[in-house]
């Protein structure tokens, strides 16, 4: 059996590759029911009014790109649409790690549609304010004391939309993308409603905050992103990935069942024969 295991591994890996490749080779439109949480997420962003400012902490690591970036790209473009149509203001910032800076910078420079918007008036990118929870606390308490310039090095005193932003009280809502703990955002920003785009595996972690309505809406990984892309009519990478996720999960369930059939059908029965 032990000599056979590497062969089993190879077979499992090959079948895994095969199952996740199917949706890319033969594009089939698998059903995608929209979760109420994603509907709520869109509703909250849609309900932002003229003059409302939303701040988003883009604190994901590069390894989480495949899972969180599609949701971020869709969300930020939708917020920018609200800026264009309603005069909402958007502040983007990263606090976590140098890797998060690279992650946020890539999205900011390559994936956002800022057509018709003026930088510094409708939206601003503050770059990296190192310190994670300390930075979150600083921005919430006294923003001008901790943020001196934006991403381009322009003093915030010269950025029109930053003139009225001094602390958490000046923001209508905050959002965060995280590939680690959601707790620091709750500790420092729970005074205002929070929304999040988070790894599907971390959903359990935020549920106590969702129940208490501290986090008012969330996107759950690639699935949430795909649902959101569908809702806003902007088909992106999450929609392409979601079918592969479906086939991968079905394959995982099949493996679990196969493992137990094998165990009860062969291994245990053989063990009983030996005992007798």
């Amino acid at each position: 059996m032990s000599a056979m295991l590497p062969k089993v591994d190879r077979l499992i890996f090959l079948l895994f590759l095969f199952f996740i490749a199917i949706p890319f080779i033969l594009p089939v439109a698998l059903p995608l029911p929209i979760s109420p949480t994603t509907l709520k997420y869109k509703e909250i962003l849609e309900n932002l009014r003229k003059g409302d400012t939303i701040i988003w902490f883009v604190d994901a690591m590069i390894g989480a790109w495949a899972e969180t970036a599609p949701g971020d790209i869709a969300t930020f473009n939708f917020i920018l649409e609200q800026c264009r149509e309603k005069g909402v203001k958007f502040v983007m910032v990263t606090t976590f790690h140098a890797e998060s800076l690279a992650y946020a910078e890539t999205i900011f420079k390559n994936y956002l549609n800022t057509e018709g918007l003026t930088y510094g008036v409708d939206y601003v990118y503050l770059g990296w304010i190192p310190g994670y929870e300390s930075a979150l606390a600083g921005i919430a308490g006294n923003l001008p004391a901790i943020v001196k310039t934006d991403y381009y090095g322009t003093p915030i005193s010269q950025i029109p939309m930053m003139q009225n932003l001094h602390s958490i009280d000046d923001f209508a809502i905050s959002g965060f993308t995280s590939s680690t703990s959601p707790d620091p955002y709750i500790r420092q920003w729970s005074k205002k409603p929070i929304i999040t785009n988070i790894l599907a595996a971390n959903i359990g972690w935020i549920m106590p905050y969702v129940e208490k309505r501290i986090i008012v809406a969330y996107l759950a990984g690639v699935r949430g992103a795909a649902e959101f892309e569908y809702l806003i009519g902007r088909i992106g990478s999450a929609t392409k990935l979601i079918s592969a996720q479906s086939t991968a999960h079905i394959y995982a369930v099949a493996l679990l069942i196969a493992a137990n059939i094998y165990y009860f059908g062969f291994v245990r029965r053989r063990g009983e024969v030996i005992k007798k």
Partner: peptide, 30 residues
């Protein structure tokens, strides 16, 4: 999934059933 997830006792059975349900739920198609 293949090597380790074998229901050797009742607790493992609970874990397995929960895992299958959650995975089916997380796959939008199923």
């Amino acid at each position: 999934f293949f090597r380790g997830a074998r229901t050797r006792n009742i607790y493992a059975l609970f874990l397995l059933v929960t895992a299958i349900i959650i995975m089916l739920w997380q796959a939008p198609a199923t």
